[in-house]
């Protein structure tokens, strides 16, 4: 899902930088204000985890590959604003040192994977927990798995739209339109990366709830700004 340089036209690239600069600033402000020292080691560990899970490419039946992202797991553990920081850090390192994702398209990639994905996944998780009504390892794992699945697929859809509108607005960039980009991205993520995301996100939450529940109660940054030390 890392859009390289040369696929998005100048207008799209500039647009996403304009969107992301205030998002990054807000995420930075919220994270520094509400995240305590206790959450900092978790931020470091999760950034490593996110970086690594993205290295595992899984085969897609149409001959391409896809990978999970891990953003929803970060959002559940530290709150979605902290996930913006953690996943953006990973995307910056990937772009500069490993050529994975372009520099002009960095903001678009951050929008998809570090902003849209953790927030949607987090809200799906919260809504499901409310719906389930009780909080145990099984309900949390299920809610987290579905949150992960929905989150990565919404992110993939955003990427597909960004790719697919180029032929209409910026000829010479991504050569394929929406009629090809949407089915291709959705196949890869609904069929392969989504299930991987769901299984990993659900399993980690299940494991933590069962064996280290205190790690689920680290101070986190809620979307509204308040810091809470436990699940509400």
């Amino acid at each position: 899902m890392h859009i390289p340089d040369g696929y998005l036209g100048p207008a799209t690239c500039v647009f996403f930088y304009i969107v992301m600069i205030p998002v990054w600033y807000k995420a930075f402000k919220m994270t520094s204000k509400y995240l305590s020292d206790k959450s900092v080691p978790m931020m470091g560990m999760l950034s490593a985890f996110v970086f690594l899970v993205m290295m595992f490419n899984w085969p897609v039946p149409d001959g391409t590959t896809a990978h999970m992202v891990g953003a929803v797991l970060v959002a559940i553990l530290l709150g979605p604003w902290a996930a913006v920081i953690v996943v953006s850090v990973v995307l910056v390192i990937q772009a500069f040192f490993f050529g994975d994702g372009g520099l002009t398209s960095l903001a678009a990639n951050c929008f998809n994977m570090a902003f849209v994905m953790p927030f949607t996944g987090y809200y799906v998780y919260k809504a499901l927990m409310k719906f389930f009504g009780k909080e145990n390892a099984k309900t949390m794992a299920l809610a987290a798995a579905i949150g992960g699945y929905v989150g990565i697929n919404i992110a993939a859809f955003c990427a597909a739209v960004e790719f697919g509108i180029q032929p209409y607005i910026a000829p010479g960039y991504c050569p394929y339109g929406l009629n090809l980009s949407i089915p291709a991205m959705m196949l890869a993520h609904m069929l392969v990366a989504g299930p991987v995301e769901a299984v990993v996100t659900g399993s980690v939450i299940y494991y933590l709830k069962t064996y280290s529940p205190h790690l689920l109660e680290l101070p986190k940054v809620m979307p509204g700004g308040e810091s809470v030390g436990n699940m509400d």
Binding site: M1, H2, I3, P4, T64, T65, Y176, S181, M185, A188
Partner: peptide, 8 residues
């Protein structure tokens, strides 16, 4: 033996 990810 697979290609790149779509769009990469």
């Amino acid at each position: 033996n697979y290609g790149d990810a779509w769009g990469e």
